[in-house]
Design a protein around this nucleic acid. Sequence first.
DNA 1: ATAATGACTATTT
DNA 2: CAAATAGCCATTA
Length: 112
Amino acid sequence: MPTPPRLAILELLALVPSGTVVSYGQLADLAGLPGRARLVGKVLRDADTQALPWHRVVAANGTISLPADSEAASEQRQRLLAEGVTFTGKRVNMKQHNWQPDLAAILMLLKY
DNA sequence: ATAATGACTATTT
DNA sequence: CAAATAGCCATTA
């Protein structure tokens, strides 16, 4: 049984549009959980990655927060590239792709 | 109750 | 730009 905080994170993640990314901390803040970036990471580990855009979550500096050599890391990068996300070396160009919550997302946040 | 852990982050070397 | 440093805080052991 997911605790309320986790639920908020998951619902919010589901709203992140293709071609954009969010940082762990940003997602935590939006979900009303300031300072809990690490919790987001844990949620992603436990969550059902099949149905959620988990690959749209990257570190605040734009890098992928998974072991550079891991299979998951390369897959995440591949998925992002497929959505049109551009990289500069190892970092996502946050300037262009960092998600800015739209009205729908803001409204949804009100229930928490 | 205490201590270690980690898909984090901001700052400083 | 890479690496170390020091905060962060729920979850685990």
